[in-house]
């Protein structure tokens, strides 16, 4: 009986968005009288941080501070149309729509400010702290919040913008088989180290180390969070998660998700990653989707590490202790 160590490696190319009947997102932005900007979306934040990154993108494009952005999501009855939050598409699709909406809203903002400051739109610039000023004449400036209020009470105008982004449907070229199903792809490579206990069949993951290429990071802390959380999910798929019984009798199977096996804090390996930024040509500020992909490469990396450790190839997930023991038995008794 022994503890066998192994190292496995796996890589992933991951598409951003999808290709059904086309992949559209829309956004609307309007200024309130207090100078905050409401971004209306039907895309949802599932907890992964969409509101944060979309708020950053809107603030950057509008030239206002992050705290001035209010993201209003997820009433699909009344909001602008969106395909939804899935396929690692939202930052890319919604972000592009929000840039378009924010660009139009900023133009409306500048037009009102130009009238108020008696200057040309092209002569105005923002100072990044909530003011618009006439280039080269810092004394002629006005707060964006004041312009927002004046637009409604003095000029009877709206400060608003509409934005749409659509990845058109791509058909397969019948001659060549070529198509363009996604907009861009992110990439990753993962190295996992495991230890397999040949007596109990238990696999301990020692480390999961990855390199990611994700385009421009709008929010590096959220990217790191996705990668670490995805590594945990991948490890969970690889070794634990199943609704099938671990042993032949059905009464040993989990009845619901509260009995569904997952790694806890004691099982967590060292998780480490480096992130490379190679901006995409069509994402907002060069982003690519990094969401679902983070749970991908850890799975084959762990399976490969188990193969390296034991010499047995397991191709059915999760690789439970029972499967490990059966596989080791089969190997010992030789080819059947």
């Amino acid at each position: 009986m022994a503890r066998l160590r192994g190292t496995g490696i796996a890589a992933v190319n991951y598409p951003t968005g999808m290709n059904l009947g086309g992949d559209p997102s829309q956004a609307l932005i309007h200024a309130t009288t207090s100078g905050s900007f409401v971004v209306s979306l039907s895309a949802t934040d599932l907890g992964q941080g969409l509101k944060t990154v979309i708020g950053q993108i809107a603030a950057e494009t509008l030239g206002v501070e992050f705290g001035e952005i209010v993201i209003d999501t997820a009433d699909t009855d009344t909001g602008p149309h969106d395909m939804g939050t899935f396929a690692s598409r939202a930052t890319h699709r919604v972000g592009n729509a929000v840039i378009a909406a924010a660009t139009e809203a900023r133009q409306a903002l500048l037009e009102v400010a130009a009238e108020e400051l008696e200057a040309a739109v092209d002569d105005l610039e923002g100072d990044g702290h909530g003011n618009l000023l006439v280039k080269g004449v810092p004394t002629r400036s006005v707060r964006i919040a004041e312009i927002a209020s004046m637009a409604q009470f003095k000029y009877g105008r709206t400060i608003a913008g509409r934005g749409a982004y659509m990845k058109p449907k791509s058909l397969v070229d019948p001659e060549t088989g070529a198509m363009d199903p996604d907009s861009t792809e992110a990439h990753a490579c993962t190295v996992a180290e495991v230890e397999v206990d040949t007596e109990t069949g238990v696999v301990t993951v020692l480390s999961i180390r990855s390199a990611y290429e994700v385009g421009r990071q709008v929010n590096p802390a959220l990217v790191q969070g996705q990668i670490a959380g995805g590594a945990w999910m991948g490890m969970s798929h690889a070794l634990y998660e199943t609704t099938a019984p671990y042993y032949p009798a059905v009464d040993h199977s989990p009845r619901d998700f509260s009995e569904y096996l997952m790694p806890g804090p004691l099982e967590m390996p060292e998780i480490e990653c480096v992130v490379l930024e190679m901006p995409s040509s069509n994402g907002p500020y060069g982003v690519k989707g990094i969401g679902e992909m983070t749970a991908n490469s850890p799975i084959p990396a762990i399976a490969n590490a188990i193969y390296h450790a034991t010499g047995v190839r397991f191709d059915d997930l999760p690789i439970t202790p029972e499967k490990i023991l059966r596989g080791l038995d089969a190997k010992r008794s030789g080819p059947s």
């Binding site: 907890g47 992964q48 969070g225 670490a228 959380g229 590594a231 945990w232 997952m262 806890g264 804090p265 004691l266 967590m268 998780i271």
Partner: peptide, 17 residues
């Protein structure tokens, strides 16, 4: 780590916590 075993986190992988 021992103290956290009864509390589930589905997002972070526990390391940052």
């Amino acid at each position: 780590t021992q103290a956290l075993t009864g509390n589930i986190c589905r997002c972070t992988g526990y390391g940052p916590i």
